[in-house]
Write a protein that binds this DNA or RNA. Structure first.
Lengths: 345, 345
DNA sequence: TTGAAAGCGCTAACAA
DNA sequence: TTGTTAGCGCTTTCAA
């Protein structure tokens, strides 16, 4: 059997004819707009059901809304981002809005392309997850479409922001390690090269939070930051450098779980064991951290809740584009596991 | 500063006026359609550049294409699905097509909603990743929009299919374990309850492949399948049952890496060590399997390539809806790691 | 309360 | 080769 031409869609006109009313009436019922009597509503809804009518979102968008929320995600593999998306999707579930995710493949230019693609598809609102665009670019995007920025420490009148308190998160790890008796605590940072981003990227703030916390605990002399990247390889290479130090740090705090995975590999390769010889901590409390053989102490920034908030804020702004902007800063919590313990005697 | 009204979009009409040509001309240039002289093309392109024109994909869709490919993904956390999406996105990179992912949150009804939402948004093509809809429903979707089904062992004239040879994959693991000297090899299956799906879901095929391979190696008497689920908890509970067996199996083959994670936890909890006391293998060769402390033997079904193929097939079908359908079956490979070894003496 | 009709930005038949 | 114009399915003024 050849795939025949797709059957013509049921349109608002078909519904109107079938219910013997005007298209305007159908449109009003569709939008729950003012000016349709209960009798009219019933007639129209019945016709819709009988014909199996579904509104054509794309066509609606040409005049009104598309009921679509776009999410720009820089890395489709990052389980923390999956948490955010999951929270967002759950928040929007049951509303008329559909979440569509645009993966930017780790590339700044691509982030811009994906964001533009979403605007060109008339999305009603955008969620940008840790975007690497400048504040000015964010401003420009937000001027065009309701926007929520997640994970960047920026705020502006034009958009809402949801962040984790990364300073507090870094301090949680340092405190935890100090309480266990550590002093030589090193940090692996994802280094930021673009000047315009230094002030607002979470990786930068975590490193700053680490330094601050070390100082607060009288350990300024032991501050030791490796400029690397939040990847497995970045963690691996960073740890190799740290393990070569004499005296060796007794604890390594990687700014992200995925980097901590690389740290664990370098530590194992060096013939050392975790946590007996060295403690390792991460950040994000991702699935990785929870896996039995890994059991990584980490910082939980509850991505699920961040997604919830992002969804709520976005719908509020879609409803009222001129309402004042909001910044939500969530407090992270410590997820202590078996990868951290007292330092060797 | 209040967020002012968004600036009006530059449209095809603006470009036409600016270039002092007709809108048709602009449209033709946009589509590289026949009937525009080089001089005209140059003029129009220049005007587009000067005005910073971007075509409105949603509006284009009302008559022609939207240049959007939708991907229905049942579970945004599954790293194997991320592989597929990554391969697809890479394949489509550089074309005019944009990939948008709709997360279905593990729920059949949701899968249908997401698929419908994509159709209602006039997407040009759909990629359905291991959908749990019936063959008849797949047929219906494919009749409306070009569709590629990934990971389901189905084929039909209306859509293309990309699958991994799950029978061969299961056999790879069994062979590997047999060569190591195992005989009591157990399998943890994701059980399928819907009759219409039994024949075509990868989990079912893997279990069948396991039985077949055991038989081929003269181990029919040792066939031992636990009906569970492809989740951490499913693997955990399944392994608990298996570890209580006397004699105990010397190897556990979980049908998915994520289930193998649960197996590892149950094994550790039972005070046994991997691979000295018991070997563990998974399926998917996901990031989990590669992590140092886990180092799980698994089956690589190269999701990246599956995504590549899906993208290519979809564009071919968008170009010619009536070309005959294709089934691509990829051969999996074994990724042997430290979680499997010879059974205890 | 109801409905007719003018667009939204673009494509595609058709005419010039 | 170029331009005019009628829609695509819906929303939204504006009359009735």
């Amino acid at each position: 059997m050849e795939p025949s031409a797709p059957p013509r869609r049921v349109t608002i006109v078909d519904v109107a004819k079938h219910a013997k009313v005007s298209v305007t009436a159908v449109s009003k019922v569709l939008r729950n707009a003012y000016g349709a009597s209960p009798a009219m509503q019933a007639k129209v809804r019945e016709a819709m059901a009988e014909l199996g009518y579904r509104p054509h979102a794309a066509a609606r968008g040409l005049r009104g809304q598309t009921y679509t929320i776009g999410v720009m995600v820089p890395d489709i593999y990052n389980p923390f981002f999956a948490d955010i998306i999951s929270g967002l999707t759950k928040q929007l579930h049951g509303t008329d809005y559909q979440v569509l995710v645009g993966p930017a493949r780790h590339d700044y230019d691509n982030e811009a392309l994906v964001t533009e693609a979403m605007i060109d598809r008339s999305m009603d609102g955008l969620v940008l997850i840790v975007p690497t665009s400048t504040p000015a670019q964010l401003q420009a995007t937000a001027a065009t479409v309701p926007t929520v920025v997640v994970g960047r420490h920026v705020c502006a009148a034009a958009y809402d922001t949801v962040v984790d308190n990364d300073t507090a998160g870094a301090a949680l790890i340092v405190e935890h390690l100090v309480e266990l008796g550590h002093r030589r605590i090193a940090h692996i940072e994802h280094v930021e090269r673009t000047p315009a981003l230094i002030a607002s990227m979470p990786n930068t703030i975590r490193a700053r939070g680490y330094r601050q916390a070390m100082q607060d605990h009288g350990l300024a002399a032991h501050i030791d930051v490796i400029a690397s990247r939040y990847t497995r390889e970045g963690g691996y290479l960073g740890a190799q450098q740290l393990l070569a130090r004499r005296p060796r740090p007794t604890a390594i705090f990687a700014g992200a779980d995925i980097a901590a995975m690389g740290v664990l590999e370098a530590v194992a390769e060096a013939g050392l064991s975790v946590p007996d010889d060295i403690s390792v901590a991460g950040y994000d409390n991702s699935v990785y951290a929870t896996l039995g053989p890994i059991s990584l102490t980490s910082v939980d920034q509850s991505g699920h809740q961040m997604g919830n908030h992002a969804g709520r804020l976005l719908l509020e702004r879609v409803a009222d584009r001129h309402r004042p902007s909001t910044l939500i800063s969530l407090s992270p919590t410590l997820a202590a596991r078996r990868s951290t313990a007292a330092p060797p005697a």
